[in-house]
């Protein structure tokens, strides 16, 4: 290890201990186990700063936090999954004695037999660890992919899709039945946001936007000539959307950072209250 890294390490360790002690003293009135709480808070702050240090460059503190986080979170998912899915969802439907063993209420019902199948599927999946019977793991995978393909096949068509098409049925010549000829249109021209002209313009933009957008997504036709021009307009409109969405998200993201900074300065350092 280089001298400079050692110095950084020593500084961080010292700061950590100082923070731990100060935090411990500060929390004396609030917690019984004030030094433990002080340690935990300091550790949280250390992890927060380690992760932020990534912005400067990859470094041992980031690596430490990252690896710790990965290990702990993988275990967390497994433990919670075991308790909620296996014990909470599966066991009470398999057999009464098994759920008595796990001390959870057994769910009456005649269909519990069917819950042996996912167990078999699950065991087949584990077979992939064996070289000889590895092929069996494809059966549960086929089950999952088949089921979800069928589900998605319908899922998207049923709600959003048909609604989005039907929502595009908008009048392009003023509101329905209000078109009284070109002369009338010009004599009542107004630039107000709720006015007929703006409404009409918006409807045209929506219609042409959807139209050109769909043209852009045509794969089996050359995008040349008029078709190509429509496709160009399509991609412009897509870019406007992406820009608007980008601009809109910026603020939300900043507030997340404010939350972390509040933790550091308020909960840990106690500078702001």
């Amino acid at each position: 290890m280089r001298k400079s890294s050692l110095m950084v390490l020593a500084t961080v360790a010292t700061l950590f201990i100082v923070s731990w002690i100060f935090k411990g003293i500060a929390l004396e009135d609030i917690y019984e186990s004030n030094y433990l709480q002080g340690f935990l808070l300091t550790f949280s702050a250390f992890l927060t700063l380690s992760i932020m240090s990534f912005l400067y460059k990859d470094n041992p503190f980031y690596k430490f936090s990252e690896h710790l986080f990965v290990g702990v979170s993988a275990a967390y998912a497994m433990v919670v999954g075991f308790w909620t899915t296996i014990v909470g969802n599966l066991v009470p439907r398999l057999s009464e004695s098994l759920s008595n063993f796990f001390q959870i209420p057994y769910q009456e019902g005649t269909y519990n037999f069917f819950y042996y199948l996912p167990v078999i599927f699950g065991l087949m999946l584990l077979m992939r660890l064996s070289k000889k019977h590895g092929w069996m793991s494809r059966i549960p995978l086929a089950f999952i992919i088949g089921t979800t393909a069928g589900l998605n096949f319908i899922g998207y068509l049923r709600s959003d899709f048909t609604n989005q098409i039907a929502a595009t049925f908008i009048p392009l010549l003023g509101a329905a039945g209000e078109w009284k000829g070109i002369g009338d249109f010009f004599s009542n021209l107004s630039l107000s946001a709720g006015g007929q002209l703006v409404m009409m313009l918006s409807n045209w933009v929506i219609f042409l936007g959807v139209f050109c957008g769909l043209i852009y997504f045509f794969f089996s036709r050359e995008h040349t000539g008029l078709f190509g021009k429509a496709s160009r307009v399509g991609i412009w409109i897509l870019m406007i959307t992406f820009g608007a969405s980008f601009g809109y998200t910026v603020m939300g993201r900043i507030s997340l950072l404010v939350g972390r900074i509040t933790f550091l300065f308020k909960d840990w350092l106690g500078i702001i209250s």
Partner: peptide
Amino acid sequence: IIVLMIIGVVTANIGG
């Protein structure tokens, strides 16, 4: 879908 949309826009102008 584009054809349906065009028909839809026409019917929207007819209304009712």
